[in-house]
Nucleic acid binder design. Structure first.
Lengths: 246, 246
DNA sequence: GAGTGGTCTAGACCACAGC
DNA sequence: CTGTGGTCTAGACCACTCG
């Protein structure tokens, strides 16, 4: 496979770290096809030298791309461009964000929005203090000409102020992030069951139609519970796409 | 929150990198509860000094744990232990591995095992050359007293040699890894539908019972397609548990 | 202003791959 | 053996947070 002398313009006055400028530029060239699959990069010492960087800084750039799966490093061999892939990482994104990114135009119907002392099971998941209050949100997400998902969420009341207008025009995660909440990890469970009569009616399905269920609990960067949701998706119109790395 | 002077024994003769010795030890103390949630670590300069390490090396250890979500670093503030969580990362594991780890005893029935020129759709996904051959594997996974999943997999024939005995006693990924295949990324799609009559019969469900479907394509570290699978799970007995990080 | 993490440098030595 | 990445050091300066 080819070896390519690499030249990257650096802006040392920029607030963007040098290692990131390098990583971003290499990534761009891989995605653009300028650096084809299998291409060998020059060795780290030479490359760092040409770019006018120290080797640790260059290594940091390369390491970043190795972690993201765009490059492979092998001791004694060298660094190569991996066969390019759709590699959307597993992200902490909401259905709304996903749809928007996919060029769809989701519409949201807010069925219920209250602040209340939630039932004990929910309070436990949210780790609310005694008597703590939380939003309960029920929304119907539509896309194109029909419903896609029925969503119930719970958010501790002291984290953010929510209103129906905001929820109609934005994803819940957008609103949380805008309120300064730093979403960090989520654990979720995906299952399936058939629709009850009531669910079928709301989702415009037949009774007994297959539904995907998703329960998710989201934590912020210091481990506080930030949100819990139980969602139902029409299996006929939705599936979860994931990229795993190991 | 408390601040803790940290002392960690290092073995400079060990082949295990110093940064990793440090990271592993801090992780252990967090998981053991010795370092409670909210605990502040000493600042990097002092800590590096006490451990007899350079600051970059110590930072690498901390950075590793930050990436894994066990620590938070904030400029001008310090480094803190995050509220401990179940944080099983999204892993490239097989159903067999998952069950074994959970203490279950999966049994596998090999329904079909052939090497053939697969249908064009499968050949395309596997990126086989013209006339390339692949294993087609159909297995029924049982656990406890009943079936759990019906699995169909395709693996390029030149990657590994598979036989019925091996597949009965091991997960497919185990066998691939043992053959030197380096599983790296997978993209998968999770959906739901109802069982056909034939599927219901094999899975001992009623016709119309909800099933989880999972299609997965796995790539190795240089982007070659290593495996493709289409699986069916009984929703009554199985759900996908994921941990996402953002 | 004092204290913290964020970045960067210019070296060094080692371990492994492949000839 | 030569060439590669893997680790580590001992500093330096900067940017941000908070009292």
């Amino acid at each position: 496979m080819t070896q390519t002398p690499l030249s990257i313009p650096l802006d040392r006055a920029s607030p963007i770290p040098l290692y990131f400028q390098v990583a971003r530029e290499i990534e761009r060239r891989i995605l653009d096809g300028e650096l084809a699959a299998g291409t060998r990069l020059e060795n780290e010492v030479v490359l760092a030298d040409r770019l006018g960087l120290s080797r640790p800084t260059l290594r940091r750039a390369i390491g970043y791309l190795v972690d993201r799966g765009l490059l492979v490093r092998r001791r004694g061999v060298g660094t190569q461009v991996v066969r390019p892939r759709v590699r959307r990482p597993v992200e902490l994104s909401s259905l709304y964000d996903d749809l928007t990114r996919a060029g769809e135009e989701p519409r949201t119907e807010v069925l219920r929005l209250v602040v209340e002392e939630p039932p004990p099971a929910v309070a436990a998941v949210l780790e609310l203090p005694e008597g703590g209050r939380a939003y309960t949100i029920e929304r119907l997400r539509r896309i194109g000409d029909g419903p896609l998902a029925l969503m119930r969420n719970h958010v501790p009341a002291d984290l953010v102020r929510l209103d129906e207008d905001a929820l109609r025009d934005h994803g819940l995660y957008q609103l949380l992030r805008a309120a300064g909440v730093r979403l960090k990890v989520a654990s979720q469970s995906i299952g399936a069951r058939v629709a009850t009569a009531a669910e079928a009616r709301v989702l415009e399905e037949r009774r007994g139609a297959p539904l995907l269920t998703m329960d998710r609990t989201v934590y912020d960067d210091v481990g506080r519970v930030v949100e819990h949701g139980s969602h139902l998706y029409r299996a006929s119109r939705y599936s979860f796409e994931l990229t795993l790395t190991g």
